[in-house]
Amino acid sequence: MPFPPPHPLPFPVAQPAALGFDAGRLQGAVAHAVAHETPFPRDLLSHLENGQFEQPPDNEVLGPTAPRGDPNGLITRDGAVIARWGDTRRVDMTFSVAKSCLSLLAGIAMGDGLIRDLDEPVAATVRDPAFSGERNGAVTWRMLLTQTSEWEGTLFGKADRIDRGRDLQREGKAPKGWERPLEAPGTHWEYNDVRVNALSLALLHRFGRALPEVWRERVMDPIGASPDWRWEGYRTAEVEIGGRKVASVPGGGHWGGGIFTHAEDQARLGLLVLHDGVWDGRRLIPEGWIAASGVPTPLNPDYGLLWWLNRSGRFPEADRASLLAVGAGGNTIWVEPATRIVAVFRWLDPAALPGMIARVKGALA
């Protein structure tokens, strides 16, 4: 059975051996996840305020947060759960997993004709000061989706400068926020949360209504997700759309807000991606969008359309065509089409992720 029934019914469960896994080795993978808890403390608000990403005043938290729970997750193959640990229905922050959700919304916008061409400047259809001027007026949808826009400015109280020079390999340790000279739009890759928030704002303008409403209607309800998730914005992020105030939601929890959800709903998203945007015979994401999301930008072989990739083999045991939605603190959705594996790891030490993937693949008979 490739698709689980709607929440609150449980996911189908299968014995590991029935789906080609060695049960003992699979339990070793679970033990690895439990033994390698994220270094993020339980009090995420204090963690953000104490300088996880940057020092004052750039670290001001603008959106809701919540204390995190214990490590948890599940591993599925062919839509059936073969391993599970912790409370997979505990709702927690997801951080940058939300970026991959924005990618799916962009695909829907493309299918609806709200985005005519990924290489068209956003300013051609979005009337907002964020996309005015010589630099920002040249920024295209593709540049925002691949983190190559070099967009410049301050959005909802956060300047793009805050994330300039960001080194994901040394998150929370390396200096960033320096006035790096900007390159031409489309010529430099940089993981920058303010620019992702600019994409979210642009999508809000094109849909003409709050993105969480679109997300619920077009994705979460059709895949049978729980009603427990929420997508929170900043207190500074209200914009006028159609004569009413609407919150523009961020693509992560860097300054609070973002998507709060649980592992089972994330596994549903992974299954949607595994099946090329089709859920139980109904196409939700336009044909070709998932494939396009897995095409690396020339400026970073391991990054597609707001999805992390494995084209360079940084996870040696994972298939090179894997897609990963990754959030700070050890939150990952791993989709491997070649083996039909979808796995969700919550609050796993990021340093232990390669070993986790290796153990799951090593359990395949």
Rank of each mutant, 00 (worst) to 15 (best):
F3M: 07
P4E: 02
P6F: 12
P10K: 01
G20E: 07
A23R: 15
A23G: 10
Q27Y: 06
Q27D: 13
G28A: 04
H32I: 13
H36Q: 13
G51V: 06
D58V: 01
L62C: 10
P64D: 07
N72G: 00
L74V: 04
I75P: 12
D78P: 04
D78Y: 10
V81K: 13
T88Q: 00
F95R: 12
L114W: 02
D128W: 10
D128V: 13
S132Y: 06
N136Y: 08
L145E: 03
T154S: 14
D160N: 11
R161V: 08
K176S: 06
R180S: 04
E183G: 15
A184H: 12
G186D: 08
H188Q: 08
E190G: 05
V196T: 02
N197D: 15
A198E: 03
A198Q: 09
L203D: 04
F207T: 01
V214A: 06
E217G: 13
E217D: 12
M220K: 09
I223Q: 12
I223T: 14
W229D: 13
Y234G: 02
V239N: 06
G243Q: 14
G252V: 05
H254K: 05
I259M: 03
L269Q: 08
G270C: 09
V273M: 04
R282D: 11
L284T: 05
P286F: 15
I290L: 02
V295K: 14
P298L: 14
N300H: 13
P301M: 02
Y303R: 10
W307L: 05
L309H: 11
S312K: 03
G313I: 11
E317N: 09
V326W: 00
G327C: 15
V335Q: 04
T339N: 05
V342R: 04
A343L: 09
A343G: 07
R346E: 10
L353N: 08
V360G: 00
